[in-house]
Amino acid sequence: MKNSRGFSLIEVIVVIFIMAVMLMMLQAAIHSGVLVRISKSQSIALSIARNKLESLRGGGYASLPSSGTFADSLVSALPAAATTTLTVSTYNAKTKQVSVSIIWRDSGSTASSTVSLSTYITETGGLP
């Protein structure tokens, strides 16, 4: 009789608890890796966007390019298939709104990440 007894409830609960804790630790370790990668990519993307806006501001109103994609030497540091988009739209007669966005997807992440910055560039005034 003694040999055929099963596990007591307490034993089962303890085993499940230990396994759950170990699985959670494993999951947390994997997830934190993804977070670290995303934060690194975010910082690179922000650098690209700031650099682009700075050069557009410096170039001035007259030489604003039309909307489209643009190149940057740091794009290769982002995961493959990262896309850059530049949108130039007319805000009013003497002002244009310029938006820069970078979209990429880190390995291990389920969704794409985006960094976008926007500014206004006016016909008069501007940088030296």
């Binding site: 650098s47 700031r50 650099n51 700075e54 410096g58 940057d72 740091l74 940088l127 030296p128």
Partner: peptide, 13 residues
């Protein structure tokens, strides 16, 4: 390794 490249323009030049 990590690489950053940014351009800055002097605002009070």
């Amino acid at each position: 390794s990590d690489h950053r490249r940014e351009q800055f323009r002097l605002r009070n030049f």
